[in-house]
Amino acid sequence: MKKILLLTDFSKNAENAMAYAMRFFESRKCTYYVMYVHKVGGYVTDDLLMSPKNSIHDSITEKPNKKLNVLIEKLKNENKTKDYHFEIIIDYDVFTDAVNQVVNKFSIDFVVIGSNGASNIKEVIFGSNTINVIEKVKCKTLVIPSNYKFLPVKEFLVSLNNHCKLNNNLREDIMDFIEDFDLKLHVLRVTSEKDTSQIALGDKERLSLLESKYFLIEDVPVDYAVSSYLQTNTIDITAFIAQDKSLLERLFSTSPSKVLKSRMKLPLLVLHSH
């Protein structure tokens, strides 16, 4: 039984990401935790006084609870033959704190989120909540681009830079993912090291049990290498390894549009090195 956390802000992008998840996990038994996080400060006194007979908690959760039930009914109607179970979660906390609590409490396997939220600014590749989830939630996360419609997933690209080592945990996450979903693995290693033969040998030893296509490229920016690879190979989903905090800070504080724009035409699987 897979446990999937679907994050929503009731935007079209969030709804699209949930629809993608229904198709992506359709051949598996799943419990979906559909979660909305609201800042208590977003409510005004009138909201809390509208239903004086209810508790403050009930008053705060009443509106989002109704919206979540409508969303779930829509998902059920669109996936009538699927073996799915849904749970509603409403929280009012710091966004990533709330998400991490649910991930830990229910042993979530995957978090699913849209690349953008309600603001949907075209020039922005990631919304702030999405960036925070990628950086601060240590769980496999599927990030779905705006308006992306599901296509069968067969080819999976993992790109590795100088900072990224294929440790046992990361290797197991990759292996589990491709075995669970019957995918063909592509590995693109970009390096500036002199002894490339040892790097390639080490990667291939780590991947000895995996049937994969392996490519090593020297002294080329990672995003350029990924962009070129996507243009010349059929890929259905890419991976981003969230490993080096300083690297993450550079990626998301300077120019995420430059670094990840090309690969965000496709769903992105965020993996964390443990």
Rank of each mutant, 00 (worst) to 15 (best):
L207I: 01
K245G: 02
K194N: 08
E193I: 01
L188G: 05
K194F: 06
S228E: 05
D236L: 06
E249D: 09
D173S: 08
K213R: 14
L247R: 10
K184A: 15
L248Y: 08
Q243N: 14
A242Q: 04
Y224K: 12
Y224N: 13
S246K: 09
T238P: 13
D176W: 01
V222Q: 09
E218C: 13
K204S: 08
N233V: 03
L230F: 06
L209V: 00
V226D: 05
K194G: 00
D176Q: 14
R206H: 15
I237G: 14
L207F: 05
S212R: 14
R171K: 11
F181W: 07
N233R: 11
T238A: 10
R250T: 05
L216G: 09
E218S: 14
T234V: 03
L185P: 15
S228G: 02
T196Y: 05
D223Q: 15
E205H: 11
E249P: 06
S197E: 07
I235E: 12
E205I: 00
R189W: 00
N169C: 11
D203K: 03
A200M: 07
V190R: 04
T232V: 07
V220G: 01
K204C: 05
D176K: 13
Y229C: 03
K245P: 10
P221A: 09
L185M: 11
S208V: 00
P221N: 11
Y214V: 05
L170R: 01
I237R: 08
L247P: 00
D223Y: 13
K194Y: 08
Q231G: 12
R250I: 00
I237N: 15
L210C: 14
Y214G: 08
D173G: 01
T238Q: 13
K204M: 12
F177T: 13
K184C: 13
D195E: 14
L188I: 01
D195G: 12
R189Y: 03
L207M: 03
D173Q: 14
E172Y: 05
L207Q: 05
E179F: 14
T234H: 09
L188K: 04
A239M: 08
L201T: 10
L207N: 02
K184D: 14
D219A: 05
F177A: 08
D219Q: 06
V222T: 12
L207V: 02
D223G: 12
I178E: 15
D182L: 04
I199N: 08
D195I: 00
H186W: 07
N169G: 12
S227H: 10
